[in-house]
Simulated scan of single mutants.
Amino acid sequence: MEFLGITITEWVGYLASAVLLVSFMMKEVNKLRIVNSLGALLFVVYGIMLQTSWPIIITNAAIIGINLYYLLKKQD
Rank of each mutant, 00 (worst) to 15 (best):
K73C: 00
Y14L: 13
L21C: 12
N36F: 11
K73A: 02
P55I: 10
W11P: 02
K73M: 03
V22T: 07
I56N: 07
A16P: 00
T7H: 10
T9R: 04
F43R: 07
A62E: 00
L4M: 12
A40E: 06
G65Q: 06
V45Q: 02
S23H: 09
L42S: 05
I6F: 08
M49S: 08
S23T: 12
A62K: 01
S17T: 15
M26S: 12
L20P: 00
F24Y: 14
L38G: 13
Y14I: 11
V45A: 12
K74V: 10
M1Y: 07
M25T: 14
I64T: 10
I6M: 05
I48M: 08
L21E: 03
N36D: 09
K31E: 12
G5R: 00
A62V: 14
L68Q: 06
M1V: 05
I66D: 01
L42P: 07
S17R: 01
P55A: 10
A61E: 06
K27A: 10
I64P: 08
Y70G: 04
G39M: 08
I6V: 11
L38T: 13
A61T: 15
T52H: 09
E2G: 00
V45D: 05
G47C: 10
T59K: 08
L32N: 08
I34L: 13
L21K: 04
I6P: 00
